[in-house]
């Protein structure tokens, strides 16, 4: 049994038309035993960047604090908010610093980055546990249900979804994937980021 599957959990992020969405389940387990149905895996980094951290729960907590610290230091030094692209590289290099004794997390990021014209461009990325970046144009997945998420997302996702349609697509993808995964589920949380607001909804899921 892999250490990555010790606590279970899955995260997915998707790109829409001028919006992005990121969603995760709420389970925390100890192998097959469910422990909590309210375990947060997605954390706001700035108003326009959300970070999902599926993997070993202890490293989820550690990494969350570590990224909070490093983003704060960046903000103080640069006197501006970090951009999603920059944050992705910060995540990558933080993980790679521990190349031979890694944190057992596979981060997923979703954000809106500023364009020179003053607009916002959707951005998603994911890395493996040692920081290999994957900038996808459609969706990224991670966690114990990642194979299932790939399968459903590949079938349901389409380009240029409006925020409400993107919400439905990412919710259906996540719920149906985690229902086939013993280590994920127990409710879900979905965040949809648009240029002027973040919509956060908690979904009721199967409790078995």
């Amino acid at each position: 049994m892999s250490i990555m599957d010790q606590n279970g959990g899955s995260v997915i992020a998707m790109v829409g038309k001028d919006c992005v969405a990121i969603a995760s389940d709420l389970r925390l387990g100890n192998q097959a035993l469910g422990v909590s149905s309210n375990f947060q895996k997605i954390f706001p980094v700035t108003d326009r960047i959300y970070l999902g951290l599926p993997g070993l729960a202890t490293d989820v907590t550690t990494l969350k604090e570590r990224f909070r610290f490093r983003v704060n230091m960046y903000t103080i030094k640069e006197e501006r908010e970090i951009e999603p692209e920059t944050f992705a590289h910060l995540v990558s290099s933080t993980l790679y610093e521990h190349r031979f004794g890694p944190y057992f997390c596979e981060p997923v990021m979703a954000g809106l980055s500023k364009t020179p014209s003053g607009g916002y461009k959707p951005f998603i990325a994911a890395t493996d546990l040692i920081g290999c970046l994957n900038f996808a144009k459609d969706f990224v997945v991670a966690g114990t249900a990642s194979e299932k998420l790939f399968g459903v997302a590949e079938g349901l996702w389409e380009p240029d979804l409006e925020p409400e349609d993107l919400f439905e697509t990412i919710s259906q993808t996540l719920m149906n994937a985690v229902d086939r995964d013993a280590y994920s589920g127990w409710g879900c949380v979905v965040h949809v980021l648009t240029k002027d607001k973040v919509i956060t909804r908690t979904l009721k899921g199967r409790m078995d």
């Binding site: 194979e147 299932k148 790939f150 399968g151 459903v152 590949e154 079938g155 349901l156 149906n176 994937a177 229902d179 086939r180």
Partner: peptide, 8 residues
């Protein structure tokens, strides 16, 4: 594992 949840 990719197809079954889609079918569900």
């Amino acid at each position: 594992s990719l197809v079954q949840p889609f079918l569900d």
